[in-house]
Design a protein around this nucleic acid. Structure first.
Lengths: 223, 223, 223, 223
DNA sequence: GTGGTCTAGACCACG
DNA sequence: GTGGTCTAGACCACG
């Protein structure tokens, strides 16, 4: 391989890295050893390494050596994205998922699950403080997802709830949440519940969609 | 109340643990240091620790020390659930999310993004091997989610893809994926792409829904 | 400058490039001459150049030399972006700009300009073919911008029109534009015109906003 | 019809010109080659060309050849208008666009984008020199537009910035920009940023509107 | 003759 | 002893 030696070595290093050859110690041999191993000058070896460094697959410490950069697990990567999501994106996803969850709940919920949803509705409407109302509001939506009997859908909803918890600002505007708006929410919940009781999936979907539209306007006005 | 000393220390350790005092290093001081700190014998200190060990909040390695058992983050817990989700649940979620993602892509994609989707379509149809086809198939769907310009939606799709990768059996039936079915998929993709090009969100949503219905039948037959 | 010689040279080259020293011929001296000029080895000189190449400020041709890469003018850059804009982004901008343009027109238009707007309205409502209707529709909006007497605002509207022309797909869905929807548009135009005639800027803004909301729903449905 | 030969050739050249046959190189063949191509004398060929030269579609350089006179694109024409826009028109457009951009940013910005805006604010307030302050001021507004995630809106803002750069006199009065006014700007920026952090779109829009009103008074006094 | 690649050595700051 | 930088030379493919 006289041509493009550095490229060949880079490919080789990439493979050895992926194979986990250096995973146990977390470090690569020194530049000098690697150069000797491949029978090239140190400069060439360094060129071969450059790309891996730029991609963050390895990193170098002067005087210490070259280290493998443990890749963040896919879940860590996703988690990182989730922490930085905009309110608009979050609401858009809710508008996609929640109406259809309501429809699924209408056809899959047990009687007990519907009663649990009804309880969350009643507690929310009766609660005096805003904080308590919000808690029961969250519970209302959560129980609808539980009633879909789709564990994945339920997990996704828990994920969305988590984002809302970690980004307090998302619901911040609700602090200016008036008594009137609260009564509106209560009425919307009542209509969703009504549809679920009737096992009317079309109506459940529609009412949930309208409720989220109402939420959107409370949060973003006319945008 | 000399006998209650251990209980007091346990309470103290519990608080310090919860406060995150040892979260950074992930380890507690040695038993000897802790005993000295509280001014008690090592035996007493060990009694105070026992409960925490039983609850799994800390664990001991002989000769190494006492370590904090970092609780799995809520997201890790959620992810744990995701690991054994049923194929039916997964498909149901896809049927909820993907058609609406296609609709969003129709209105939010840049021209370049639509061309990227077209490329994935073309490569998929042209690829000879099944493995290659599946790769471009996944890419096709992924690029549609990217074109929605909703980072959260995109992250959720990556999550679903991850589940499919880690539960290879979910798509098991696809191994019996015939040439005819592949041509059908190709045609479906073409229709979705066509709708995206026309920026027709209603058609994009419909074609994606039909495509997933086709997938459902390939996986589960007609029920 | 014994330390980081390459960095120093890069800085120098960057300055000379920006000063236009090589703009007339469009090419730099050879690597060998540059290295001699700075009194360094060719390798070092190459390292100094690398960054400029990556940024696209210069490019190299084997056997020919190093060339200056003429930077696209800001207007070319903007134009490039405009060609790749999504329908959603375009509509959002219209929703920002047009209602306020209508309000400005209400207070700044001459009587003749309002009559010109009225003419576009009348011609649109009367026109039999869709193509003709669309032309007069565009004219209606354009004349409102002209009536704001703000040349910049008018220019921006022409820019938006240009984008729509160059991206035929943006209005493609209007081909499925029914007779009923057309009558709705006609009624909306009438209400906007009415407000302009009354010199009621608040009403003009509101009616234009409602009209664009109507357009949004025609294009994107419920997204 | 031998006399009409020139007319025929002119028609042919016109077509070939419109077809873009010579658009890539920007130049036509030499007169001699064209004459040979059409099988006519150079005199006839020159006659055929005359009209095109008079219309400015092509132009001749003695000793160099015949060149296509690329017509300015519609966007270049629009840009030409923009070059001498009045300060009042520019400010009016900013007053239309920027408050709504701020509102959009409140709902669409990622956390990282809001931090970038905060950085521009902080750097502006801390900077000693006026020139530096103005640079960070521009950056503050630019980053808000970036945070809207609307590429068209961002491009329009870049266009407005370009106009301001090329018409330095538009902001001329700012040279008499006192320390007090600067502190006011800083406070306004702080209030806008505060609203963005709270994700309060209504407040963000209002604070931006007040800030631009403040700018208007600094430029034009109270009229 | 040009840029692209490589060699075999050297000294440096840092750990 | 490690990675970071640099030298002075060489041969290559390509124009």
């Amino acid at each position: 391989m006289p041509k493009r030696v550095a490229v060949e070595i880079e490919r080789s290093l990439r493979e050895r890295l992926a194979s986990g050859e250096w995973a146990s110690t977390g470090r690569l041999p020194t530049e000098r050893r690697l150069a000797a191993h491949y029978g090239v000058a140190r400069n060439t070896l360094r060129k071969a390494i450059e790309g891996l460094v730029r991609e963050g697959k390895i990193f170098r410490h002067v005087g210490r050596g070259i280290f493998v950069n443990r890749e963040p697990s896919p879940i860590e990567q996703i988690f990182h994205v989730l922490r930085d999501v905009s309110p608009a994106d979050l609401l858009a996803v809710r508008q996609i998922v929640e109406p259809q969850a309501a429809a699924l709940a209408a056809s899959h919920a047990s009687r007990a699950q519907i009663e649990a949803i009804a309880e969350a509705h009643r507690m929310g409407c009766e609660s005096g403080e805003i904080a308590l109302f919000e808690q029961w509001d969250a519970e209302f939506h959560q129980r609808i997802f539980a009633a879909t009997r789709n564990e994945l859908l339920f997990a996704i909803h828990r994920l969305l709830s988590l984002i809302r918890q970690q980004n307090a600002w998302i619901d911040l505007k609700r602090e200016s949440f008036g008594e009137e708006q609260r009564r509106n929410y209560c009425r919307s919940h009542a209509r969703i519940l009504e549809a679920l009781r009737r096992r009317d999936d079309v109506a459940a979907e529609r009412e949930m969609r309208l409720h989220l539209e109402e939420t959107r306007q409370a949060l973003f006005g006319r945008h």
